[in-house]
Design a protein around this nucleic acid. Structure first.
Length: 425
DNA sequence: TCTGGGGTCCTAGGACCC
DNA sequence: TCTGGGGTCCTAGGACCC
């Protein structure tokens, strides 16, 4: 095992601070230093909080209705999520980061790992500062930077950097002291189930997990658990994934704004979701071989019986044709729909995705292959130009009552001139 | 009244084959 | 009388992430 090599390795995790809140703040100077919260779809849960909102005691993932009193009392600014805006700003941030190195893994909408092995130890903290400053200056988004030997340790470093004024931590010395104070549940890769198991066995901080026996962790968890332990020891096991890969499955689902009983309304929503999913995979030049439809009632409603079901239908030939996929999805929906339930959510998953260019092995393929490619292209073009769902199919319906609630949307559109700030002279 | 959405990977266990 | 067992592939479900 080459310890010298691995100890030279340096990986940085750049994480945007309260990303969605920061995005909203960019276009709204009035909410700079006040508590701000962004809600999930349907205004369901809190998914981003400013530091002021955290201090008040609003917790991550909490249902909005449970914190409404806190919100009112403290005059918290509320926003429905605007993913078009966040996606656009995310692209800008990542573009700036790519300017530092092409050895980059875009890990999520607001996080990226950078390989900084080429920077000397003495300089790396300063380099981290430069990254922060440039991202802030060029995009307006504040970030935190954690640097260490492995991805897992850089996550730890980032966690600490978030609470540190400088915003940059290079974790190299005194790692054990830090790990002793690091909660087991905050470790990357340790979720609810694993932390329960670890705590039951007296492992309640990162230092104890680091020093657990290999045999025990392999026996009690799985390879991922073992990798986490190795990474805490400073031995890199989780590689940087610098290649951008296409997705393997594509899911579109929504909760309803209002509970839905009728098959017709479920059909409308499944059709809408299916059209969106089909458009997504066409954008990525992919086809699918399997369609899953699922519906469920609310798991929180104790007064009504719970029902949840799904069905997966394999397609004889890989396709990305909207009309064919909708037909398949609706036939599946009819099989799992049960009368008499109040449905809360419906969705569709396209799986077994592959490149559209891959040759179909099925002999019938040339006959079955849709002749509607020009039609799909026309639909995609029009929807890109005039907004999603500008062209839809009749089955998607025009009734509105099951659709999402977004009562607090900022409606900012970075692609529209109307939203540029105005200066009065 | 009101509890998100979209992914990936791993594993156990069944089906099947020889 | 005696009724195998190892390998591979696939899938559903679970756990994790943000």
């Amino acid at each position: 095992m080459s310890y010298t090599n691995s100890s030279k390795k340096k990986v940085a995790l750049i994480d945007c601070n309260s990303f969605y809140v920061s995005c909203e703040r960019l276009f709204n100077p009035k909410i700079q230093n006040v508590p701000v919260v962004v809600l999930s779809n349907n205004d369901g849960c809190v998914i981003s909080r400013s530091t002021e909102a955290k201090k008040i005691g609003i917790k991550m993932g909490e249902p909005y209705f449970k914190v409404k009193d806190l919100v009112k009392k403290n005059n918290v600014q509320i926003f429905s999520s605007n993913y078009a805006l966040y996606g656009d700003l995310s692209r800008r941030v990542m573009k700036v980061l790519k300017g530092f190195t092409d050895k980059i893994e875009i890990y999520s909408i607001d996080e990226a790992f950078l390989d900084l092995s080429h920077i000397k130890d003495e300089q790396v903290e300063n380099y981290g500062k430069q990254i922060r400053e440039r991202v802030l200056k060029w995009t307006g988004i504040p970030t935190s930077v954690g640097i260490s030997n492995t991805k897992t340790l850089s996550k730890v470093a980032n966690h600490i950097a978030k609470k540190n004024k400088a915003g940059v931590i290079f974790l190299k010395k005194n790692i054990d002291t830090i790990l002793k104070n690091f909660d087991i549940a905050d470790i990357w890769g340790v979720g609810r189930q694993l932390s329960k198991l670890y705590i039951k066995n007296g492992i309640n901080n990162a230092y104890k997990l680091k020093n657990i026996s290999n045999t025990w962790v392999k026996k009690s968890t799985n390879v991922l658990g073992a990798k986490t332990v190795m990474e805490l020891r400073g031995i890199p096991c989780i590689d940087l994934e610098t290649e951008e890969t296409k997705r393997k499955s594509c899911c579109v689902s929504r909760s309803f704004g209002k509970k839905v009983e009728s098959l017709d309304k479920l059909k409308e929503s499944i059709t809408t979701h299916c059209l969106n999913a089909a458009e997504k995979i066409r954008t990525d030049k992919q086809t699918t071989r399997a369609v899953t439809v699922f519906i469920r009632t609310s798991p929180f409603d104790k007064n009504r019986k719970y029902y949840s079901n799904s069905i997966t239908i394999e397609l004889p030939v890989a396709t990305n044709n909207s009309i064919e996929l909708v037909k398949t999805a609706i036939s599946g929906l009819k099989k799992i729909y049960k009368y008499g339930y109040f449905y809360q959510k419906a969705g569709i998953i396209l799986s077994k995705l592959r490149d559209a260019s891959e040759k179909e092995l099925n002999l019938l393929a040339p006959i079955l292959e849709n002749k509607s490619k020009p039609l799909m292209r026309a639909i995609d073009f029009t929807n890109a130009k005039y907004g999603r769902n500008a062209i839809s199919i009749a089955q998607a319906g025009i009734s509105n009552d099951w659709k999402m609630r977004r009562e607090h949307s900022s409606r900012i559109d970075t692609a529209s001139f109307d939203f540029l700030p105005k200066i009065n002279i």
